[in-house]
């Protein structure tokens, strides 16, 4: 039903239906048993090119609005992880494709991560400055194309230069990494996720990796 409404572009009706279900059960029940399975399925379809850009966008907006409502619910807030860690997020220099990054922001925040979203076209040095300023655990960088993904190498170089490699983990994501997976290590990334909703799991893995290195 939710997937159908998203397919039809009926964002408000989808949010309303989720809200009705959550009053009958709870926000937590609806998020874990309805919304996240739907988003995971849509993410996989997106990865295989089976849904349109509009569907990807609308599913993100449905999630964003419902998570914001859930965040105002005291019971839901008590039931979730409050602070998993801090992530500095942005599109790399010359990259102006914000959709994936915005979805990562929505899903990761709802999973309890503190997200510092820098926006699009962010130079490597700025990621490092913000990571230091916010004592970030992870820098997450998005790039859609090969040309722009190569600019992420500069983030790794800046991490090395500031002796932060291993202390601040580097997550990378975007369409090009799905189609060219070897690129993750080529440009110095510590890991990637196939879908935006998978970013929280990736951050957890990277955080554990960081802890185990100390």
């Amino acid at each position: 039903m939710i997937a159908h409404l998203i397919n039809e572009g009926e964002k408000d009706s989808a949010v309303q239906l989720l809200l009705e279900w959550s009053t009958e059960t709870s926000f937590k029940e609806v998020i874990f048993n309805v919304l996240e399975p739907v988003l995971t399925e849509l993410g996989q379809l997106w990865m295989r090119g089976k849904i349109s850009l509009a569907h990807g966008y609308i599913s993100g907006k449905v999630a964003e609005e419902f998570y914001l409502m859930a965040a105002r619910d005291q019971e839901f807030n008590l039931s979730r992880n409050q602070h998993q860690g801090t992530v500095v997020l942005g599109n790399i220099e010359d990259d102006f494709h914000p959709l994936g990054r915005r979805l990562v922001n929505i899903y990761a925040r709802s999973a309890g991560w503190k997200i510092i979203d820098l926006g699009t076209d962010i130079p490597a040095e700025h990621f490092i400055e913000k990571a230091i300023e916010n004592k970030a655990d992870i820098i997450a960088v998005s790039a859609m194309m090969f040309t722009t993904a190569k600019n992420i190498i500069k983030v790794r170089q800046e991490l090395d230069k500031n002796s932060l490699s291993g202390k601040v983990m580097l997550a990378v994501g975007g369409a090009v990494f799905k189609l060219r997976p070897e690129l993750v290590t080529e440009i110095g990334g510590d890991g990637t996720a196939d879908t935006a909703i998978g970013a929280s799991d990736l951050f957890e893995t990277l955080l554990k990796q960081k802890m185990s290195d100390f």
């Binding site: 572009g9 964002k11 849904i51 850009l53 509009a54 966008y57 609308i58 907006k61 914000p98």
Partner: peptide
């Protein structure tokens, strides 16, 4: 047809955010 924005109601917020 290709991006799937069937109506202005879905296209406008997307374009305005970007």
């Amino acid at each position: 047809d290709y991006m799937g924005f069937k109506t202005p109601k879905t296209a406008r917020p997307f374009m305005n955010e970007m």
